[in-house]
């Protein structure tokens, strides 16, 4: 099967100082990699979870895929065709949609839900003889009453607003849905509702989804594959269940171990990782995770690790990937305990 989307060695750089500074300053300013060497493919119909701390570049990657941020290097191939020019991106955007973190804030407050739902298709020039009927059909699809066509965004609850966000994103019948923190700020009971809805529609319509999130407990249930980002690079990819069962990158392992467990009998009394994610303006040398890695070796400080295969369907960017054997797991636990205290 050919992938729906292929990203190869994608990089995004920003010059520090902004436009004015660059115009006034004759010397080239240093530029910084927000994304670097990102290689990832998405198969038709699959769900990928893109996971990492804030500041790791997840949202930038999603926006770059849609052509909303310009790539400095690398390749994007959508449905087997290179996406290069603005026209290519426009064509791709007709077949892919983005669902934003806060659908109410991203919707225009003065437009009614009915208008908001049909606006993207009108902009794309799709014929629509009866806008109201089309909007009602979309509302029915996401389980909202038809009377909502006349409501304003601020009149909806958090869960209802997300449903409108889902309807709007799927109105174009996309082949790819990019969802940026689709359940951030929602209560667990409502989060399940929104994700079940996306899952049902996905089974019906067959689109692929990329879900950007830092919520591991949620992504574990709704994704087929995981891609873990750290400081603008992918550090690990693999099937979700396998990655959770046996993470290969120490960063993935620390993320999983950091999740609080909703069971007072399983409290963990040591920290899996100390310190904070460094700024992209001060990228550490060698492996970028070395400043926080519980298993750091001298080589890690000097030499950047390559992104390489580590078993079937697994990739990892680490000089010393974790093995699945118990000895290693114990070493990791002990090392992170020492580092945490």
């Amino acid at each position: 099967m050919t992938p729906l989307l292929e990203i190869e060695e994608l990089a995004v750089t920003f010059a520090r100082g902004g436009l004015i500074n660059r115009l006034l300053n004759p010397l080239p300013l240093p530029s910084f990699n927000i994304l670097d060497g990102v290689t990832l493919s998405v198969m038709p119909g699959e769900t990928i979870g893109l996971v990492g701390e804030s500041g790791s570049g997840k949202t930038t990657l999603a926006r770059t895929i849609l052509g909303l941020v310009r790539a400095a290097a690398g390749q994007i191939v959508f449905e087997g065709r290179d996406v290069v020019t603005q026209a290519d991106f426009r064509a791709m955007r007709r077949k892919s949609s983005m669902m934003f973190q806060d659908p109410v804030a991203s919707l225009s407050p003065r437009l009614r839900i009915g208008t908001l739902l049909t606006e993207p298709q009108i902009i794309q020039g799709r014929p629509m003889p009866d806008r109201r009927a089309a909007a009602k059909a979309l509302l029915a699809q996401v389980g909202l009453p038809a009377s909502f066509v006349d409501r304003f965004p601020h009149e909806l609850s958090g869960g209802q607003a997300r449903r409108v966000g889902v309807a709007r994103a799927l109105a174009m019948k996309p082949n790819l849905l990019l969802a940026d923190e689709p359940t951030a700020g929602l209560d667990v009971s409502v989060q399940g509702d929104v994700l079940n809805l996306v899952g049902e529609l996905q089974r019906e319509q067959g689109f692929a989804a990329m879900i950007v999130t830092h919520n591991l407990a949620m992504i574990r249930h709704v994704s087929d594959r995981l891609a873990i980002m750290y400081l603008g690079r992918l550090v690990e990819t693999g099937p979700t269940q396998e990655v959770f069962a046996a993470p290969k990158h120490p960063y993935t392992a620390t993320l999983i171990r950091s999740e609080p467990v909703p069971d007072p009998r399983q409290r963990s009394y040591h920290l899996a990782v100390s310190g904070e994610i460094p700024s992209v303006f001060r990228r550490p040398s060698g492996c970028e995770f070395h400043t926080r890695c519980p298993l750091v070796q001298p080589r890690c400080r000097l030499e950047p690790p390559a992104y390489r295969r580590a078993g079937a369907n697994r990739m990892v960017r680490c000089h010393y990937p974790l093995e699945t054997c118990d000895q290693e797991k114990e070493d990791f636990a002990r090392a992170s305990e020492n580092k945490g205290n």
Binding site: S157, V188, S189, V190, Q191, G192, D193, L195, N196, G199, A217, M218, R220, H221, V222, T240, Q241, F244, E259, P260, V261, P262, D263
Partner: peptide, 24 residues
């Protein structure tokens, strides 16, 4: 009980449907 049952962190294996609390 319903609140506890909704927390995806309580289920290590993939759930086909996430549990919810119906109603508002």
């Amino acid at each position: 009980r319903a609140l506890l049952a909704c927390d995806p962190a309580r289920f290590p294996d993939r759930l086909e449907r996430l549990p919810t609390i119906p109603g508002t």
